[in-house]
Amino acid sequence: MSVIIILLIVSILIAGGFLIGFLWSVKDGQFDDQQSPAQRMLFDNELKINQTNLKNTK
């Protein structure tokens, strides 16, 4: 069952990669603000399109 070792190594590598990613993201200030990102993604800064006439009507 030595393949388990391979899988463990690979899994730990991935998990470790995610951990580094997480630490990086925290240090980078990714999660300092947990309010505005959720709001900001609703606005697209598109010019030239009139949002209002895209609404669905029956």
């Binding site: 030595s2 393949v3 391979i6 690979v10 590598l13 990669g17 990613g21 990086w24 980078d28």
Partner: peptide, 29 residues
């Protein structure tokens, strides 16, 4: 070089590790 490097190195390490380890492990098995 935030993520690209990290990811690429992960893949490189992964491929290298796998290619080296797998045959050794498996033939014995």
């Amino acid at each position: 070089k935030p993520i690209l490097l990290l990811v690429l190195s992960l893949v490189v390490v992964g491929i290298g590790g796998v290619i080296e380890l797998v045959p050794t492990f498996l033939v014995k098995e």
